[in-house]
Simulated scan of single mutants.
Amino acid sequence: MKKIVPVFMACLIFCSVGGTTVLAAVPPDNGGIVSPCYLYTNQAYSNLSISGGVASCKSTVYGISGTTTKIVVTQTLQVKDGMSWRRITDWSETFNSWYCSYPNSYSPIGSGTYRVKTVAKVYKGTSYETITVYSTEVS
């Protein structure tokens, strides 16, 4: 009996340590980024740069070659107004392709914090999904 107790205790400690290690194993942190899963879209970007009083806006959408049939893009230049965003102007275009790059510019631009909102309807035939992306804020 005296030999069984130490062996039992050793097993208990070993199992506890092993159990703790298993419970402590968690998936790696990806920075809190959650990537949505789309049916017809691979990637979408919204970019803004301001120089010399001109806002240069660009929306880029990559559908899926052989799947995506059309992309309808609405690009909106916005300025921060208190805690919300106010529309300055917008542009829309239809691209009968699986890919689009849509540049626009606006001037004169005043002081403030700006961003570009891109809303893309990405089609496969008559079915579509709506993607919304924002540029980084530029002051």
Rank of each mutant, 00 (worst) to 15 (best):
Lys2Val: 07
Gly63Asn: 06
Ser49Gln: 12
Ser56Trp: 01
Pro36Phe: 11
Ser135Gly: 04
Leu23Thr: 10
Thr136Ala: 15
Lys124Tyr: 15
Val7Arg: 10
Val61Tyr: 06
Ser127Trp: 02
Thr132Tyr: 04
Val5Thr: 14
Thr67Asp: 03
Tyr38Cys: 08
Val54Glu: 12
Gly19Ala: 13
Ala10Cys: 05
Arg86Phe: 01
Gly18Lys: 03
Gly32Val: 12
Tyr102Phe: 15
Val133Pro: 07
Thr76Lys: 04
Ile88Ala: 00
Trp98Glu: 07
Tyr123Lys: 12
Ser46Asp: 08
Arg87His: 09
Thr89Ile: 07
Cys100Val: 02
Ser51Tyr: 05
Pro103Lys: 00
Cys57Phe: 00
Ala44Met: 06
Phe8Pro: 03
Val116Thr: 08
Gln78Leu: 01
Thr132Ser: 10
Ser92Asp: 10
Ile71Lys: 04
Gly19Thr: 12
Thr118Phe: 06
Ser105His: 05
Glu93His: 06
Lys3Asp: 14
Lys117Gly: 03
Met83Val: 12
Asp29Cys: 05
Lys2Gln: 07
Arg115Glu: 01
Asp90Trp: 02
Cys15Ser: 14
Lys124Pro: 09
Cys100Phe: 03
Ser107Glu: 11
Ser92Leu: 02
Gly66Met: 04
Ala24Leu: 14
Tyr45Phe: 13
Gly18Ser: 06
Ser35Lys: 11
Phe8Ala: 15
Ile88Trp: 00
Val26Leu: 12
Thr74Gln: 09
Ser49Cys: 08
Cys37Asn: 12
Gln78Val: 00
Gly52Cys: 05
Ala44Lys: 02
Trp98Ile: 05
Tyr106Arg: 08
Ala44His: 04
Pro36Glu: 13
Val72Asn: 09
Ser65Pro: 09
Gly32Ala: 11
Pro27Thr: 10
Ile109Met: 09
Val22Asp: 02
Tyr134Leu: 05
Lys3His: 13
Tyr128Val: 12
Thr74Asp: 06
Pro36Asn: 14
Gly63Tyr: 01
Lys80Phe: 00
Ala120Val: 01
Lys70Glu: 01
Asp81Ala: 15
Ser59Gln: 03
Pro103His: 01
Gln78Gly: 00
Glu129Gln: 04
Asn96Leu: 14
Met1Ser: 03
Ser107Lys: 11
Ile13Phe: 05
Ile33Val: 15
Asn47Thr: 13
Tyr45Pro: 04
Gly19Asp: 13
Ser139Asp: 07
Lys124Leu: 11
Thr130Gly: 08
Ser35Arg: 09
Ile4His: 08
Met9Pro: 10
Thr60Leu: 07
Thr94Lys: 06
Ser127Glu: 12
Val79Ala: 02
Tyr45Cys: 07
Met83Cys: 12
Phe8Cys: 12
Ser135Asn: 03
Ser97Asp: 15
Glu93Lys: 10
Ser56Thr: 09
Ser65Val: 11
Lys124Asn: 15
Ile4Gly: 08
Ser127Arg: 06
Val133Tyr: 08
Pro103Thr: 02
Val54Phe: 09
Asp81Leu: 13
Thr41Phe: 07
Thr69Met: 05
Ser92His: 04
Arg86Glu: 05
Thr126Ile: 11
Ser107Leu: 09
Ala24Asn: 13
Tyr40Leu: 01
Glu137Asn: 14
Gln43His: 15
Ser107Asp: 09
Ser46Val: 03
Gly125Tyr: 01
Val61Ser: 03
Ser101Thr: 06
Gly31Tyr: 02
Glu93Ser: 08
Asp29Lys: 04
Val133Phe: 06
